[in-house]
Design a protein around this nucleic acid. Sequence first.
DNA 1: CAGGATCCAGACGTGGATCCGT
DNA 2: ACGGATCCACGTCTGGATCCTG
Lengths: 220, 220
Amino acid sequence: MKILASPDSIDELLIRCRAICGCSVVDLANYIGLPVPKNLKTAKGWVGRVIEYALGADCNNKAAPDFSKLGIELKTVPVNAKMRPLESTYVCTAPITKQLSKFENSVVWCKLAHVLWVPIVVTGNTIADRTVGMSLLWQPKASLKSILQSDWEDIQEYLACGLVDKLTARVGNYLHIRPKAASSAVLIPWLTLDGDYQYTTPKGFYIRTTLTKSILTGVA
Amino acid sequence: MKILASPDSIDELLIRCRAICGCSVVDLANYIGLPVPKNLKTAKGWVGRVIEYALGADCNNKAAPDFSKLGIELKTVPVNAKMRPLESTYVCTAPITKQLSKFENSVVWCKLAHVLWVPIVVTGNTIADRTVGMSLLWQPKASLKSILQSDWEDIQEYLACGLVDKLTARVGNYLHIRPKAASSAVLIPWLTLDGDYQYTTPKGFYIRTTLTKSILTGVA
DNA sequence: CAGGATCCAGACGTGGATCCGT
DNA sequence: ACGGATCCACGTCTGGATCCTG
């Protein structure tokens, strides 16, 4: 398999982005030497992995940004022909205990502060119907950061108040919470304000398509 | 592979122990359907797993006793022809942060409160030279419990005082600390009293052969 | 169509212990 | 001989996301 080193500069990263723009994801995978699954039902993260390899992201690195030397996070997002995002975007796992009190120190902000968005244009139902779009290196404007922070603080508020079961995907303007687990059967304990244990499915932070749409159109 | 249910009673467990007493470990593994490695260098925990299957211990159960219905922990211990233990016995991982303040609530005590010792008689250097000895269902006498507690408290003292690097295998009469990791390259952070981070290899609680010898001879 | 459910790969942690150099 | 180093299996967790149903 062809392994690319992590890019040393933003210029190098952007050159790589231009190089894969327009490519079919299957062609990219073949070039790299990654096996191509029949469909994405049982390989949901496969496209993301292809792009990681194609751009030389440091795969298998935990809490660090994908491009560690540059401090940049990579996010692939499926879009239709009009560049409208088809899915919300996973950001990171959400501890169901209260996090750090400052948004700036949160994993969410760490991930979203500097992102390379790689749109994947979806033109049909097969895995062959996915091509790489034009990448966008992005940092949130101050106004957006405020909204994200406010969403994040709202969510922390639910946790601090022991309202885990009331914390649904409906909470949050741009940033919200969704289940993140192998299935709804996976349960983790959390401590209520009464000191009792309750159980809930693990959660993740996601951003809504309304926001990714604004990002991809250059509005955010 | 032949899977045995967890025993429902101590009698049932002891009957199983008698049934495998005298058996070659390789024969047992073949009967169960477990592949036999060439040697133990690269399969160090293999004998323990064979005995788990042979007795119907709940494998793959985390903090719980091996025989969950009975609250009994299973320990295999290699011994020579004179029943002298050849190795110290691993008890559990040792958090390098201070544990609970009461020995009775510690994982160490939880594991050692009720143990089924299965001696494995080692008569040579090959994997074929290991046969199951006579098992011993055991609970520590009060006098021993005091010593274990004292050892455990000494160790907690080192941790509380931020003396992780001074906490070697020399500390403790019967219970002591040893490295427990894939290699000495594995490092975990710990917080010194000064608030600094330092790194150390993960540790485990072990009991010395002097103690297991006393146990197997019925003295402890 | 959005909220909830689900899926894979690979890293990591833990329980099972024995190896090995001084 | 014993203190420190090491090895496998396997369950769990995390990062990568998309599926699916009312």
